[in-house]
């Protein structure tokens, strides 16, 4: 009787062990497939001869909405293209130096196992000025020469963005009411925005 109990327990233990081993193998296989699929979708994967490490942890940074917005950016932007090329070369240089320092004795880059691989950002930053704006701005550069001491940076515009600095002030509707009165009590108008704004009070 005791022997039978031992046999049953032993059999159950063996079955459990086999299941655990199978699960571990399945996990490893899945992880490898994920890594390879990520690599294949990435820019660096397009140049596999430059980066030959077999196992890499790829960390992606994605901003909400960036992917969908990317398609709207212009196809060419020389500054961004330069930056991307510099980024690629930086990755190449870094990995090559790491290979040289650590893998000289072995002579193979396959032994490099960086915890975090540098990746080039394949998405362009938002362009700042439209071509029409750039072209038109050429006619106003004299303003910079005559009146502007120092360019105001975006992070210096908190005060400019306050409602009190807007043409209509902190209570924009007051201007709207006043404009209706001035239009009906005087003979001139203009300069406060086009008439389609909804006054309709002429």
């Amino acid at each position: 009787m005791i022997l039978k109990i031992h046999l049953v327990i032993s059999a159950a233990f063996m079955v459990f062990s086999v299941q655990v081993v199978a699960a571990e193998k399945l996990t490893l296989l899945t992880a490898e497939r994920q890594v390879s699929s990520e690599e294949s979708s990435h820019v660096i994967a397009q140049a596999p001869s430059q980066i030959t490490s077999s196992v890499r942890v790829v960390k992606k940074y994605k901003t909400k909405g960036r992917t969908s917005a990317t398609s709207k950016y212009p196809a060419t932007d020389e500054h961004t293209e330069q930056g991307r090329e510099q980024g690629k070369s930086l990755v190449k240089t870094t990995l090559a130096e790491k290979s040289k320092n650590e893998g000289n004795s072995v002579g193979s880059a396959k032994q490099i196992k960086p915890l975090l691989a540098l990746v080039a950002i394949d998405q362009k930053p938002p362009p700042s000025v439209s071509p029409a704006g750039q072209w038109l701005n050429k006619g106003f550069t004299w303003i910079d020469d005559w009146f502007i001491d120092k360019e105001v940076k975006p992070w210096q515009k908190a005060k400019l963005a306050e409602p009190v600095m807007s043409p209509a002030g902190v209570a924009p509707v007051m201007k709207k009411f006043a404009s209706k009165i001035y239009i009906s009590k005087a003979a001139t108008f203009g300069g406060d925005g086009i008439a389609g704004g909804g006054c309709g009070c002429k």
Partner: peptide
């Protein structure tokens, strides 16, 4: 009335802009 206006920024810092507006009543 119908109206349309366009605000065009001219420089990288968004410090200069041109506005063009049109309305028909």
């Amino acid at each position: 009335s119908v109206s349309a206006s366009y605000l065009l920024f001219l420089d990288k810092g968004k410090n200069r802009s041109v506005n063009i507006g049109f309305a028909y009543l």
